[in-house]
């Protein structure tokens, strides 16, 4: 009993160590890629696959988040006669938390699954070995462009999610529930600061990098056969999902610290 737990713990620690080394290698490779113009077409191609095709999915997610928030929160606020404050509630939730996190979760499913399956298949069909056999570093050639594309595009996709979330909330609140348009936007503008939108978008860099790094790692270490690839995809999604939530928490704490220290200074400048 204790032995099996011990063995599991050792395996877990080993895996963490290997993942950490992988991340280090990817970071180096990504820095290298940024300094060579000849790798840009690879990044560009991945941006198209990863980013452009994800726009509809992310927009739909955003829109529904906004609409659902409006429907759910309306009754509570209306009961207190505060329904005109609905805008603050919806918009701050959307830009700060729900937009970024749900968009990232959608991306973990859509991109993460595809990356793991692609690299996993390349791994079991010896294509990654083939890249190495021709004197090319597979981390530079395959992983770095994907991580960079994800890192750069997740924030952009979050902006799309935010935008549609705000529109969705507006649609339900003002057009369906008949809240005064002017009051709705006034309260929103008072409640939501540039800071709130920024941290939502900045989180995107971390989420994007985490999703791509985890998915690529799972693809690289996947076991043989259709079963191995399927399992790697599932593990990649679960791991990405958990790290999105964990990163979200950690970033919330960090940004709160930063906000409390520096943001008041702004008014003095």
């Amino acid at each position: 009993m204790i032995e099996t737990i011990g063995a599991d713990v050792i395996k877990g620690v080993n895996n963490m160590g290997r993942f950490a080394r992988f991340v280090l290698e990817v970071t180096k490779a990504a820095a290298w890629s940024c300094s060579r113009t000849r790798t840009y077409p690879l990044i560009w191609a991945q941006m198209h696959l990863i980013g452009v095709r994800s726009v509809p999915v992310v927009m739909i997610t955003g829109a529904f988040v906004g609409m659902v928030l409006a429907v759910q929160a309306y009754d509570q606020l209306a009961g207190m006669g505060l329904e005109e404050h609905l805008g603050v509630l919806i918009n701050i939730s959307v830009v700060k938390e729900l937009g970024p996190v749900l968009a990232a979760v959608m991306l973990a499913g859509r991109i993460g699954g595809a990356l793991t399956a692609e690299l996993g298949t390349m791994n079991v069909t010896e294509q990654i070995d083939a890249v190495r056999s021709m004197g090319t570093d597979p981390v530079r050639h395959l992983v770095a462009p994907r991580v960079l594309a994800c890192l750069l595009l997740t924030p952009a996709l979050i902006i799309f999610a935010d935008l549609l979330g705000i529109l969705g909330g507006y649609f339900v609140s003002v057009i369906q529930m008949d809240i005064n348009n002017r009051a709705y936007w006034n309260f929103s503008a008072q409640g939501v600061e540039l800071w709130d939108v920024s941290i939502g978008v900045i989180k995107g860099f971390f989420f994007g990098a985490a999703i791509a790094a985890i998915s690529c790692y799972k693809g690289f270490t996947c076991r043989e056969g259709a079963h191995g690839v399927g399992q790697a995809c599932t593990e990649a999604f679960v791991a990405s999902f958990i790290s999105i939530l964990a990163l979200d928490f950690a970033l919330a704490v960090i940004f709160k610290g930063i906000y409390n220290t520096f943001w008041p200074v702004r008014s003095l400048v």
Binding site: T125, E126, D129, A130, R132, S133, G135, T136
Partner: peptide, 18 residues
């Protein structure tokens, strides 16, 4: 190793074409 590997050609069992 990448430099050394350019002296080699390797034909994989399944081809391993991209």
């Amino acid at each position: 190793l990448d430099k050394i590997r350019t002296h080699f050609g390797f034909l994989f069992q399944g081809g391993a074409l991209f």
